[in-house]
Design a protein around this nucleic acid. Structure first.
Lengths: 199, 199
DNA sequence: GGCCGATGTATCGGTCCGATACATCGCAAC
DNA sequence: GTTGCGATGTATCGGACCGATACATCGGCC
């Protein structure tokens, strides 16, 4: 999950950890709160040993000190991570292999959705429908509670269920709209200059 | 978090693990998905060693009614957990000591809210206002993204931000209503049992 | 008799979080 | 000038929680 998010961001441009976290927070802020360094740095290391990312600047002419640890000033400096060719493949693989874990968690869905512009239409539809199914299940659960056991709950619990039910209904409607758009081919149009077409 | 939830449920009545999970899932289903046994059972064991809960039927000299889960016939049977007196104190303590972690996570807030009927009014207000502040912060973050960086984002990311913003605005309005009710003393009336004196 | 789904307890590996520590840099107050 | 302070930046540790899995019992239902 974090792996997908990191690869996706580094796919756009190389970055160091701090910046990565900021982008992660704003880009995924709608569905998850913030990424902790306690997950970020270990994951970065793992991605590095797996060969998906590498330390240092991209092929754009590296400076002289490209030796052991080419930290920009010789002191403990910022470490820039760049995605590798294998990493890009891995990213596409993760994007397409969207299993149930994609629908189950808010965060999982949010991350995948955030990269929908780089996901193929069939996978987009699959994810949206899977997500809708999950949310509908949650919605039904809450409806049952409200209709069958309402008298056994205190007012606050009831209110919590009502609020949750409302949120679920809204999300289902939102998903329904997105699904309709996908089927129409009315994919939300990127602003203007996005040469990314189906290759 | 799980600790509070478990103590709260066992405060209502003794239960075994499976039932506990079901109740947890429906009662807190609005804000978190489902509790895993991989967290539930270890936590139960911890609560037991801490002395907050105990294994077996409640201490009230209940005669061994035939109904009383005597399935422990040498085989592996169901284990009923009962909250202890210390556990009840601990529960109240956790209820009142609602720090920032209470507002930060959906789950944390959901659990505290679910037990609002047993929380004193001052703490209720504090939690609701803390939560509102958090959600407002998230909302402002998303507004900034939408107003300042909209042109640099693809249509899907934009849509995600819009949806998130909408959800935040709704939650803030919901919280505002609840806060107003609290201040009015218009606390949602519990069914019939023992309502607080309406001042 | 055999199968199956609901009930029930339990563990393991792994992901992610929250707190914490520490170092650098620019900038403003004094 | 130097002192302090907030933003930037890297890093680790313990712990909470999850998902998968295993295994056992029970009540039907064919």
């Amino acid at each position: 999950m974090l792996e997908l998010a990191i690869l996706g961001l580094l796919h756009e441009s190389p970055m160091h950890g701090y910046e990565l976290r900021k982008q992660l927070t704003t880009k995924l802020g709608a569905f998850r709160a913030a990424i902790s360094y306690g997950s970020l740095y270990p994951t970065l290391r793992r991605l590095q040993t797996d060969g998906w990312i590498s330390e240092g600047a991209p092929p754009a002419g590296m400076p002289a000190s490209a030796d052991e640890v080419p930290l920009l000033t010789g002191k403990r400096g910022r470490v820039v991570y760049t995605i590798t060719a294998e990493g890009k493949e891995r990213f596409q693989e993760l994007l397409t292999a969207a299993g149930p874990e994609t629908y189950d968690s808010e965060a999982g869905f949010g991350v995948h959705f955030a990269f929908f512009a780089r996901t193929d239409p069939a996978t987009r539809l699959r994810i949206l429908e899977g997500r809708r199914r999950r949310v509908e299940e949650r919605r039904e659960g809450m409806r049952d509670v409200l209709s069958r056991a309402a008298e056994r709950l205190d007012a606050y619990t009831l209110e919590l269920q009502r609020h949750g039910l409302d949120a679920c209904e809204r999300e289902v409607r939102w998903l329904e709209e997105l699904i309709a758009n996908e089927r129409n081919g009315t994919t939300p149009q990127p602003p203007s200059a996005d040469p990314e077409r189906s290759s």
